[in-house]
Simulated assay, not measured.
Amino acid sequence: MNDGIVDVTVDLVVVEQFLNTLDERTFSWHGERHTGHDGLTSVQALSGWLEAHGLVTAGQELGPADLTAAVALRDGLRAALIDDGDGAKTAQALAAFPLRLAPDSSGRLRLAATSGTAGLDAIVETVASNVAGGGWSRLKLCSSTDCRWAFYDTSRNGGGRWCSMEACGNRNKTRAYRRRHAD
């Protein structure tokens, strides 16, 4: 710990998993209906998720304000992924989490969130660093309206639209094909 800042580094995979604590999928796949759920419905659920991802230590006290901040951050970041051509929604999602420059363990400067909200600062720092470095544009929400799953776009040109070509991509392309041939 340095000057009250925990030096925890996470990557966009953890941010993706954080965004997917809200599962809005409502489609059927191989005959089974998927029903979404919210993984952050209680302080205990938030604490468990943060502990499982190494963002807080076991037994670290969290409160209702931490849950409120986590849900607001997640919802704001998800909204920013939908349509954020100018970055305003991402900036708005991060507004409640002040950032400053702080030295890391090697003495170099890094972005440090200093909100004091247990476990969320590392997520905010990762998002802010990736916004600055261009990696944030690869994190997307599935374009399928009955999915909206967050995914990291690994396509060559960054133009991926669906979380999975096998599921969402195939369903959407099949729907478009049927619409074209129904006319």
Rank of each mutant, 00 (worst) to 15 (best):
D38P: 10
L94Q: 04
V13K: 04
L77M: 08
G159S: 05
S42E: 12
H30C: 12
E166N: 13
R148F: 00
R179S: 14
D153T: 13
A150W: 00
A88N: 12
R110W: 00
L120I: 01
W29I: 14
P103W: 03
D66L: 15
R100V: 11
Q44D: 15
G158K: 02
A52R: 02
D75R: 06
A95Y: 06
G133L: 09
R178N: 08
K140P: 07
A45T: 09
A182Y: 10
S164M: 07
A113V: 04
L40Q: 01
C147A: 04
A69K: 02
G54I: 14
S155D: 09
H53T: 10
A80C: 12
L139I: 05
D7L: 12
E32S: 15
Q92A: 15
V15Y: 13
V8W: 06
A80D: 12
Q44L: 15
T126C: 15
L81F: 07
R156T: 13
N172S: 14
C163H: 00
W29C: 10
A113Q: 03
V15E: 13
E61S: 13
W136T: 04
D3Y: 09
G31D: 08
L101N: 03
W49P: 10
L99K: 09
L67S: 03
D66F: 14
A96V: 04
S106G: 06
Y152G: 07
T41I: 11
V6T: 12
A65F: 06
T114V: 15
M1R: 00
D3V: 08
Q17E: 14
W29G: 06
C142K: 02
G63F: 08
D86S: 08
R108A: 13
R179C: 10
L109Q: 08
A93H: 05
A65I: 11
R171W: 09
R25M: 08
W49L: 01
A96W: 05
S115H: 04
D38F: 07
G160C: 00
S115G: 09
C147G: 01
L111W: 01
F97S: 06
G169F: 03
D11K: 00
F151Y: 02
L62C: 08
R25D: 05
R138D: 01
A118T: 07
Y152A: 07
L55P: 06
A91Q: 13
A88K: 14
C147F: 06
A79V: 12
C168S: 03
D38V: 09
R78H: 07
V10Q: 01
R156F: 04
A70Y: 06
A72M: 03
G39I: 11
L141G: 02
T174E: 00
A167G: 10
M165P: 01
K89C: 10
L109S: 08
A96M: 05
D11C: 04
I123H: 05
R171F: 09
G160Q: 04
G4C: 09
E51L: 06
P98F: 11
T154H: 13
A79S: 13
N130T: 06
L12M: 02
L55Q: 00
T41M: 08
P64Y: 15
A167W: 04
H34M: 11
T57M: 14
A122Y: 03
T126K: 14
T26C: 13
L62Q: 06
R171A: 10
V71Q: 09
S129T: 15
M165D: 11
F151Q: 02
